[in-house]
Amino acid sequence: MSANVPTTLLEAKAVAKHFGGVKALRDVSLTIRRGEIYGLIGPNGAGKTTFFNCMTGLYVPDGGGFVFDGVPLVADAPHQAAERGIARTFQNIRLFGNMTALENVMVGRHVRTRAGVLGAMLNNAATRAEEAAIRQRAMDLLHYVRIEDRADDLAKNLSYGDQRRLEIARALASEPKLLCLDEPAAGMNATETAELRELIEGIRRDGTTILLIEHDVKLVMGLCDRVAVLDYGALVIEDVPAVVQKDQRVIEAYLGA
């Protein structure tokens, strides 16, 4: 990490969410600093994805809220979260299956581009220039995640690992400040996981903060600067991996003791 004091990028303040009687999140507060890889782990059903969905605006929290980049996030507005600089991938990959890989990434440029209906109908110089820029940037991103040779294939025909990569490329297309990855290594073999790790480290090096939800404890402990553990919707601990690994409560949560 750089020598200067890390500043806060995202602050969750007592976020609560319940579904009927189930308390999925109980006043979770945590802080993500600029430039770090932050891991969020916990057993199945601990509330990790719920936390993600609250943050990215897909769910409206029942209590608390988020401050991103110094300004509160508006609840129930996923498109605004993306505009503010939060991009995400999904646990069960959600690509636009019948669009090509390139088109998927081009859609990702939506929030950073302007052309409207009038521009499209007139197809004026500004629109054409923007369209060319979108295409170029999307191509660059496919190159970045190393699937540029699949650019013209339909997203659904890509291999599982490539689909994961494509989803990351699409998320990066919106130039996020915070990239949230929901179990990106799920279903990957050792080689693919190693490549993914390399990719994530590269993205961080290029200046994007990363929030990583993962089941693969080894990957999280090796990759993350700090880790938070959720259990039954409550925050157990938030610290550097070395401390988290030795924490008795974490061991209990995972072993079910």
Partner: peptide, 21 residues
């Protein structure tokens, strides 16, 4: 166009479309 792609994205997966902004 950008709008046309957004329409197609909504048709394909509305939640993912929201998530990309």
């Amino acid at each position: 166009s950008r709008i046309g792609r957004a329409w197609q994205a909504i048709r394909e997966d509305e939640i993912a479309a929201k998530a990309v902004g």
